[in-house]
Design a protein around this nucleic acid. Sequence first.
RNA 1: CGGGAUGUGGCGCAGUCUGGCAGCGCACCUGCUUUGGGAGCAGGGGGUCGGGAGUUCAAAUCUCCCCAUCCCGACCA
Length: 573
Amino acid sequence: MRWTSLFIPTLREAPAEAEAVSHQLLVRGGFIRQLQSGHYSMLPLAWKVNKKIVKILREEMDLIGAQEVMLPAIHPASLWQKSGRWDAIGDDMFRFLDRKDADQVLAMTNEEVIATVALELSSYRDLPQMWYQIQTKFRDEPRPKSGLLRVREFDMKDSYSIDIDDEGLDKSFNLHHQAYERIFIRLGLHAIPVEASSGAMGGSDSVEFMVESPAGEDDVAVCNSCGYSANVERATSIIPEVGNRLENETLEKFDTPNIRTIEALSQAGHPPEHQIKTLVYMIDGELSLILLRGDHQFQEQKFCDTSSSVEVTPAEEDTIKKALGASPGSLGAVGIDKMPIFADPALKGRTGMTTGANEDDFHLSGVNIERDIKIDQWIDMRSIADGEGCPSCSEPLRVVRCIEAGHIFKLGRKYSEAMGVTVLDSEGESQTPTMGSYGIGVGRAMAAIAETHCDDSGLIWPMSVAPYEVVLTVVKTDDENSMKIAEEIYTDLKTNGIDVLLDDREERPGVKFADAELIGIPLRVTIGPRGLENGVVEFLDRSDPEKTQAEINIAEVRDFLLEKISSQQDLTA
RNA sequence: CGGGAUGUGGCGCAGUCUGGCAGCGCACCUGCUUUGGGAGCAGGGGGUCGGGAGUUCAAAUCUCCCCAUCCCGACCA
């Protein structure tokens, strides 16, 4: 295409509200524009990138034998009531009434519909099945953010597997795992597969594909030594043992005026690792106590997963006061037997501890956990920290910020059972098949690529998804010879299947160079009188930090570029 | 949903405290001169100052209500 006939509204400055690098560059480069919070228009350049990402997704899904389908985006409420998610999902789901006053939902995912379609399967011989689609999803996010990274309306590749048994599910899951690894490599993303929490999706096993980036929203523990990796919602670690304070073995109440924090108590001579942190939570409707070591943080999701709790919310202050007789800052579990008490294993065997006395301005010292507190359940619910020991090799773990680029789940029979899906097995017995679901957000992938492929001048798209592979920059458009050669090269490249952009604008060279770099075209060929005198054009690789230019004979340009493109095209090789 | 911030032409901002002609830079249009890393000069177009109500002779500016956007947290199927 010719630049003069394209709509590429580049900006010198990014909008003030754009903070994430990908957001700034995608707006500045004329890729996207915002309509409202969480809703973006993809302009021609972004849509070209989008299509290239989608092409890769299709190729890799087809390669593992998945079949493309297209499901409705509007579902009747009854479908979601059947699976229980009509009630389980709150405001995150867009809901509306149709003209007949029937409840409808805008689909945020499609397990229910897939299970409905699967009702037509009747024999184990029909299995396995893998179905995928690339379709717009709607989620009423409480806080959309960072441009395309978290939005309310986005295209997602979602796929689903249906198998007769666990062994089959493992196979489908592994096929997806492999496909995802290839996809992310082809997208130029270094995605680490990590153990993840399944959240309210249910199911036994889930793996997230995480791309390290400060713009991400998840923290992941990774071990550089043995390769262990897990979302902090799930990660465990080895921590050094703390010696008990043996001089302090008898329970004693003492005066702590105005001391309400771990920090303040620590300054009063009770280090955090010798304190018991007491949190009051409403857990599935029951007021409960959560005990952690003073210097540890509560990991809510981890608690939910290991305790199989569904609803875990902090208790209101007046509820706490009523139940324990004191306000947060003076709470403790000693002597409490009328509510469930959950404790983190880091407290096991600890004595000489300090905790609140359930009386404002008083604490207890000399607490022996197992002697003085009636613990109902030990549950690993501590958030791990950077530098703690890897659970499998004990080397220090790193905690890194990541973008969740993909997520795969073993769902089990939750949805097939709810929808009543059954097939006959080889014995003629009725069986409920097991399912998996697998997702990659297209726009988020684009943002993750932008986030990790840029420099001070702008974007640097990987060849596989670049809006154009080559940009021909004509330095002087009013120089007849320059334009003649440029047109010849342009036509030649196009007929040879190269995705080429001809910058034929009557702009000064500096503007053209800056724009080409901003929109991140991987290869640039500069055509100007200076080179043409010697029968050459200049070549520049966008990813070269030194910006070294090479002179190429005009006659060799096409073969040179074809070679460059193919060597950068497929990174899985 | 809790906390914080911001809303003035397509983008970036000043003006608001102390009420008195809506301004600047970029972008855009016309002309001339320029032309190998975001040109110069001259002329020009484009604004319900987020919205509503109020105070006032007079409101971008003061008061009240509402809305939108961003950031932190909670949440994230």
